[in-house]
Every structure is written in C-alpha cells, then in structure tokens.
C-alpha cells in the first residue's frame, strides 16, 4: 500500500536531511583538518630541509635553483616578501635584491657601448667580476630570477631569446622579428653585412638596410667601413665576445 504524505513522513525526511548534512560537514571537516595537517607537516619539512641545507642553498647555485623549483611546485615563493620566515632563514630576498641592483648598475654602465642589450652570459660574468669579494657563486638562473623581480619596477627589464642565446634588454626598444633574425645571424662573427643579410635571410636590399639602420640608430649596432673589401660591416656589441672585455673596462672606469 502506497504511503501517503503525512506529518510523520515529512518529519522523518527532514531528520534524515539533517543527519546527512551533519555527516557531510563532519567528513569535510575531517578532510580539511587532514589537509591542513599534511600541509603544515609539509611546510615544516620544507622549513627543516631549508634549515638543514641553508649553506648549500646559499652557496651552491645549482642547488638553489632546484630548491626554487621545489618551492614553486608547492606554491611557496621565498622571494615574495623580505619579511617572514623564509627571508629570515635564508636571507634569500636580500640576495636577489642585491643582485638586481647590481644588474641594473651593469646594464647602465654598459648601455652606451651596447645600446642597452647585453648577452646574459656576459652579464653573469660581469656580475661575478663585480662580486669577487662575495664568496657565493651565482648562476644564470639566479640572474634570471633577479631580473624577473626587477619587472615589478616596470622599468622594462626583459629577457629575450635570440637564437640559442639569451639577451637582457634594459631599454624600451621594441625589437621586431627582423631585428631578432639579424642579431641571430650576427652571433656567428659578431657582425653582418647588408649582402650577407640579403643572402642568408633572403630579404630584399631595402628590408635589410632598413632593419640595420634601425639597429644602428638604437645604438645596438656600430658601423665599420674600414675593411679592405670596402663592404660596410655592422657590429653588434651585445653579441660579440670581445665586448665583454670592453664592458669590463668600462665598469672599472
């Protein structure tokens, strides 16, 4: 016989709903607690790890970069703030802050020579020369991290990839695809000629000349008309290895 709706039926249904809700809340609470506990365990483990390997993190650039990776995976940014546990423990915020300031100084000191574009490798080696006194070694990864922190200043510090090399740009010059291709081509010898650009990239003479003139005007290229063959060479201090030495001279000066 079919049950008809009645007071007691409604009451039973309401009671059951309450029970379910209670149970559900309990389960959720247990889960959250468990998660919280796990997270705090993990955090304390991470802290313990950091504490234990403090010196490695400070001194060994490869270790440092792996530690950063690990932190990023669990959503901890040791560089996010200069206060708090991480900064106190590792002093890592100050480290990158200092690095950032030095990078800015090097970029400014070499700007008149390279037009505000510098090879990441060279930047690193200049940075190392500068920090000779400090015993900690630094890697390209550290440079990149410090540069990424500079972005918040909105000063237009940016890392661009040209061919296999990474270049650090400290001026707001917009480089288009043509310019990038020329820079890539120049990496072989440190310079290009109009003819070479036309031949290797299959461009029209006008396109090559235009792009080279822009690079010249931006101070990224220097012209050289002294070769015996009479062809003008466009040299790029930001890709030529010799420029590292020139820049070292400048920073000393």
């Amino acid at each position: 016989m079919r049950r008809r709706p009645g007071i007691s039926g409604l009451q039973t249904a309401a009671a059951a709903r309450d029970q379910y809700r209670l149970l559900g809340e309990n389960v959720a609470k247990i889960r959250t607690d468990l998660m919280k506990e796990q997270l705090s365990t993990f955090r304390s483990q991470l802290e313990e790890f950091a504490r234990k390997h403090k010196n490695d993190i400070r001194k060994n650039p490869a270790f440092r970069s792996q530690f950063h990776e690990m932190c990023a995976k669990v959503g901890v940014d040791p560089l996010a703030s200069n206060k708090g546990f991480w900064a106190e423990l590792l002093g890592i915020g100050d480290f990158y802050y200092e690095l950032g300031v030095q990078i800015v100084e090097i970029c400014l000191a070499t700007r008149s020579h390279n037009g505000g574009l510098i090879n990441l490798q060279e930047l690193c080696s200049l940075l190392r020369q500068r920090r000779k006194a400090a015993r900690d070694s630094i890697s390209e990864d550290d440079c990149l991290r410090a540069i990424s922190k500079l972005k918040v200043l909105g000063s237009g510090f940016e890392v661009i990839s040209v061919g296999k090399k990474k270049l650090v740009r400290s001026v707001p010059t917009e480089l288009n695809k043509d310019h990038n291709e020329i820079l890539e081509l120049a990496q072989a010898q440190g310079f290009v000629t109009v003819e070479e650009v036309e031949k290797r990239l299959g461009w029209s003479p006008g396109r090559a000349t235009d792009a080279l003139e822009v690079l010249l005007k931006e101070g990224l290229a220097m012209i050289d008309d002294g070769h015996r063959d009479g062809k003008h060479r466009y040299w790029f201090p930001c890709v030529a290895s010799i420029s590292a030495a020139i820049e070292a001279d400048m920073i000393k000066a």
């Binding site: 008149s112 310079f191 101070g219 012209i223 002294g226 060479r233 040299w235």
Partner: peptide, 13 residues
C-alpha cells in the same frame, strides 16, 4: 674592436 676605427654616425654612440 673594428667599429671604433670608424667615426660613428649615431650621436650617442
């Protein structure tokens, strides 16, 4: 560095 022997046309450089 060869281009330093050519008078540079761009003012800053």
């Amino acid at each position: 560095y060869p281009p330093y022997f050519t008078l540079q046309p761009v003012r800053d450089t």
